[in-house]
């Protein structure tokens, strides 16, 4: 009897050890691709990077060398357009959710914002095509900007809301107590206090948008030449990577890695900054 109980205990202990090991193992397996991808991109990308890569234009098909200056510029313009269309909407919607959103309408908007963030980016591209490319009868950076704006809205709205909510209520109470109207308190006291968080949150949305390819394929399309005209097709880093990855030239593949490296570094910097700025705050809010 005693012996059996002991064996049972032993079995329970080993089962515990097995499951703990499996759990740690799955963490390792899950994190390995991150390191593989990061270091492979680093190794491949760094050899493609030089000053030419940043300031030169793509060379004609078949010639080695050249750069992606137009794609860098294009991505910057596309993101600028996305911010122009998307940010005002997101910031005001975020203010509404944080300040007045404690009702059924607020809950509904919050819910649909989350749902919107689950819509595939390629679908957003199709919508931008219908809304902008068809009426204009031309692929354009403008259409790409609209697609990126729609993709940025969910992240930007929700982080604006979260960051405003992190401002201690005593700030607002102090403002209201000395007779400042609520809207002024929001604009003059709450927003500036939350500004740092909102800015980094928006940077996060921008970083995500910068990495989008699918919604640009048939809106901004891509362009092998220098163009800053938003009514014409425009190059972007991501579409550049896609085209160069599929191409049968080693030199182009190498440049695709270079562009991927630039993209990953930008995105990691923004993510780590976001972590740093909001460090500890989320945790305090949750407890």
């Amino acid at each position: 009897m005693k012996n059996r109980e002991f064996r049972n205990h032993h079995w329970r202990k080993s089962k515990n050890t097995i499951m703990t090991t499996l759990s740690i193992l799955s963490v390792l397996i899950a994190v390995i691709p991150l390191f593989l991808i990061f270091f492979y991109t680093l190794a491949q990308g760094i050899s493609a990077l030089n000053i030419d890569f940043f300031i030169h234009m793509p060379k004609p098909v078949g010639e080695n060398g050249g750069g992606m200056a137009n794609a860098l510029m294009g991505t910057a313009i596309l993101i600028g357009l996305g911010c122009l269309f998307g940010l005002p909407i997101s910031i005001f919607a975020g203010i509404y959710l944080a300040e007045y959103g404690n009702n059924a309408f607020g809950q509904t908007v919050r819910f649909f914002t989350d749902v919107l963030s689950g819509v595939p980016s390629i679908v957003v591209g199709v919508v931008a095509y219908i809304l902008v490319v068809i009426p204009m009868k031309q692929f354009s950076a403008l259409a790409g900007g609209v697609a990126l704006a729609i993709l940025m809205i969910p992240t930007a709205t929700r982080t604006t809301e979260e960051m405003i909510k992190l401002v201690p209520p005593s700030y607002r109470e102090a403002a209201l107590a000395i007779g400042i109207p609520q809207w002024k308190a929001t604009l003059r006291i709450i927003l500036p206090t939350a500004l740092k968080g909102i800015t980094t949150g928006i940077l996060l949305a921008i970083a995500r948008a910068a990495g989008e390819t699918a919604p640009l394929l048939f809106t901004a399309l891509g362009n092998r030449f220098w163009s800053t005209n938003i009514y014409h097709p425009m190059a972007s880093l991501t579409v550049f990577i896609y085209d160069y990855a599929k191409a049968p030239f080693d030199d182009w593949n190498r440049q695709a890695w270079g562009a991927a490296f630039v993209l990953i570094v930008l995105i990691f910097i923004v993510n780590i900054t976001f972590r740093y700025v909001t460090r500890g705050r989320y945790a305090d809010n949750q407890n």
Binding site: A30, V31, P33, L34, L36, I37, Y40, T41, A207, R208, A210, G211, E212, T213, A214, T238, I241, Y242, A245, A256, W257, A260, L263, I264, I267, F268, N271
Partner: peptide, 15 residues
Amino acid sequence: VELLAAIPSIVYGLW
């Protein structure tokens, strides 16, 4: 783990 989610889809494709 969250950083893994931030890598753009195109880079996964390239890899």
